[in-house]
Computed example of a mutant assay.
Amino acid sequence: MNATSRPPLSVRHRTDAALVHLGLPAALLGIAVAGHLLAPAGPLRALLVAPALLWVPGRSLMAGLRPAGAAAAVTAALSVVLSLVALTAAGLLCQAVTGRVPLAVLPLWVSAVLLPLNLREWRAEHPAAPLALLAKARPVAVFGVAGTASAALLALVFIHLPTTAQHPYLSFSLAGEYTRIDGVLPVRAGQGLTIPVAVSASPAGTLPENLAVVTEVDGRTVGEPVPVTDAGAGHGGAAVHVRVPHGCKHQVMLRLTRGGKNLRSVDVYLRTRDVPNCARG
């Protein structure tokens, strides 16, 4: 009677052990992929992706390299160190080849590429006893508990952090024909100037309220602050009226303020033409 040949017991044991060693990293990688695809950005996604970031790449390298004298007690620590080394090397390679580093998916790709190395980690003799398997799994359990506690603490802090609205960056510049001024503007003593200025918010949005332009001539404030008119779409402007004083050279400083606080400034330099000895020099 012909019986179906079965592989030797030691071979089956080695195969089972290989599946055990491969199964946990593969499961953690699957959880990380699911977290990246399904979980919203925040502590939950960080918790799900953390094993693929800090443990799976290094553990795969440990399984493939089989360093001599590596005790089970330091396997988790070495796995974290090797994970960081592997991700750093992969990031540098991506930067050199493509000019960018895909931070969101890089840990997943590195973990997937290194995952088959876990197949090398099985014993030639009998499979480990259940207690020995539990001892091997202890560093993983400790890492998991620590990661869960860290993510819970991060989530708690994240929820209770105060939120502050980010103010847009304001640009302040001369407008109209004054944008073409090159150097010193020739004027006459007593001449009235109307200097337009432009304000814009970046990114485009609504200008803050209570913006005004304060005028200084030769370091002295003149006139009243001129309110900035909001033109919509994050843009606004004002027109400042200045009378040229007597003298040869003058500096007109326009300051953008809000609630008395200086935000930005632009200046215009003047030289009178009708005063003796002022046309030149």
Results as ranks from 00 to 15, higher is better:
residue 2 N to S: 13
residue 4 T to V: 14
residue 8 P to L: 06
residue 9 L to K: 12
residue 11 V to H: 03
residue 20 V to Y: 11
residue 23 G to I: 10
residue 26 A to M: 06
residue 31 I to D: 05
residue 33 V to I: 15
residue 36 H to C: 09
residue 39 A to E: 12
residue 46 A to M: 13
residue 47 L to K: 10
residue 52 A to K: 12
residue 53 L to I: 13
residue 54 L to T: 13
residue 57 P to R: 08
residue 59 R to W: 13
residue 64 G to L: 05
residue 65 L to T: 05
residue 66 R to P: 00
residue 67 P to Q: 01
residue 68 A to W: 02
residue 71 A to Y: 03
residue 80 V to Y: 03
residue 81 V to A: 15
residue 84 L to N: 01
residue 87 L to G: 08
residue 92 L to A: 15
residue 97 V to M: 09
residue 98 T to E: 12
residue 102 P to Q: 02
residue 103 L to N: 06
residue 105 V to R: 11
residue 106 L to K: 09
residue 106 L to M: 07
residue 108 L to Y: 02
residue 108 L to C: 07
residue 111 S to K: 01
residue 112 A to V: 00
residue 113 V to W: 04
residue 114 L to A: 05
residue 114 L to F: 03
residue 116 P to Q: 08
residue 119 L to Y: 06
residue 120 R to Y: 04
residue 124 A to L: 14
residue 132 A to R: 15
residue 134 L to G: 15
residue 138 R to S: 08
residue 142 V to E: 01
residue 142 V to Y: 04
residue 145 V to E: 00
residue 146 A to H: 00
residue 148 T to V: 11
residue 176 G to M: 01
residue 176 G to I: 07
residue 176 G to R: 00
residue 176 G to C: 04
residue 177 E to W: 02
residue 177 E to I: 04
residue 179 T to G: 08
residue 180 R to Q: 10
residue 181 I to E: 06
residue 183 G to Y: 01
residue 186 P to L: 03
residue 196 P to V: 07
residue 197 V to P: 09
residue 198 A to P: 03
residue 203 P to Y: 10
residue 205 G to S: 12
residue 206 T to V: 11
residue 207 L to A: 08
residue 210 N to V: 02
residue 215 T to H: 05
residue 216 E to P: 02
residue 221 T to S: 09
residue 222 V to W: 09
residue 223 G to L: 07
residue 223 G to F: 04
residue 228 V to C: 05
residue 229 T to Y: 01
residue 229 T to C: 00
residue 230 D to M: 08
residue 235 H to D: 09
residue 236 G to F: 12
residue 236 G to C: 14
residue 239 A to S: 15
residue 243 R to M: 05
residue 246 H to F: 09
residue 250 H to V: 03
residue 253 M to G: 04
residue 263 L to S: 10
residue 263 L to Y: 10
residue 265 S to D: 14
residue 272 T to H: 08
residue 278 C to M: 06
